[in-house]
Write a protein that binds this DNA or RNA. Sequence first.
DNA 1: AATTTTTATGCAATTAGTTGCATATAGCTC
DNA 2: GAGCTATATGCAACTAATTGCATAAAAATT
Lengths: 189, 189
Amino acid sequence: MHTMSLSHAILTALLDEDLTGYALAKQFDVSLGFFWQASHQQIYRELKGLHLAGRVNVEEVPQHGKPDKRVYSLTTLGRDMLESWIVDSTRARGAKDELFIKLFNVGSVPVKQITLAIEQRKAEHTRKLELYRKIEMRNYTSPLTLPDRKKGVYLSLLAGIRQEQTALIWCDDALDLLTTVRSNPKVKG
Amino acid sequence: MHTMSLSHAILTALLDEDLTGYALAKQFDVSLGFFWQASHQQIYRELKGLHLAGRVNVEEVPQHGKPDKRVYSLTTLGRDMLESWIVDSTRARGAKDELFIKLFNVGSVPVKQITLAIEQRKAEHTRKLELYRKIEMRNYTSPLTLPDRKKGVYLSLLAGIRQEQTALIWCDDALDLLTTVRSNPKVKG
DNA sequence: AATTTTTATGCAATTAGTTGCATATAGCTC
DNA sequence: GAGCTATATGCAACTAATTGCATAAAAATT
């Protein structure tokens, strides 16, 4: 079964460079993590499993004071796992978004609360879009001339940018339509 | 803590009508489930918990042959739980999408495999968009004249439609850019 | 000098989600 | 009449993800 995607995300991050769990966690915060979030606890646990399964090597780097660094690198087995996952895995993890569940409550709960949730979401999208744009301007102004191994990363970023844009426009349209909702019945009709 | 969203999704589905676990599972397949998937096993388990917590009532409807129906309905406590969840919960469950992790492998794995994954995804988006459009044409041709309690559902659908459209365009652009990738090095450079 | 942030690792407990299985009848199709 | 689909419920086992806690020192900030 090629299901546990966190391990694949970790292996992917190790393609470019050998990393410690700590460094991996940071990577997840700034790039891979835009599309696959994970906490450091999860990452450490997963690394242990990957090591046990021979997908990664560990090099222990003694340090004074701090815990020793454990620098992980891909093994051939790890690469193979990654490649075969790319080939077979299809399973689409269903979208889960609370906001839409909230929207199903329009008409039964004060609209105000729901518009508030949308406004919060809008702010979030704005923040993300700005972040993505910044990254784009810094590293991906000329997609066609990128080295091959950067093209996928760029495309992910592009997807992120467009998702945020679409979402932002939707937020405004949603807020518009919700101004036409007057009643807030609390009982079932 | 207002975290477990499946229970909120269930309570939301019960706003409109009283339902059995089975009927809920079906609802999840066709509307709420576009934005929050759940298996029948999950739903039955959750219903039990909600009942234990006094958020829903059960009415047992004896049947011959088949297991007795258990028809669930919201209690006042359930409504309150739902409303307070709408007010406080903010937590954005991070997007998790395998496809983007796959994209990070461009340059290290045969591009073919990745374009294939995108094509699969494209087909999926096409299928979903068609489905959403069908629902839109059937029930939501005139958003402004909808009864209030349908407006949120419509907005969810609208979000779905736009997400799929955006994703489809992106798929094509991605496939385009990936035609410019020639090399498939399997070793770290 | 004291506080906060960053580096660096990890365990334990809990909650959420998936997969496989089990039961049992009615009704429809081949 | 054999097999499939729909109705209707649920347990058990497992995998994945989250949350809270714990340690410990260097570096940066106030």
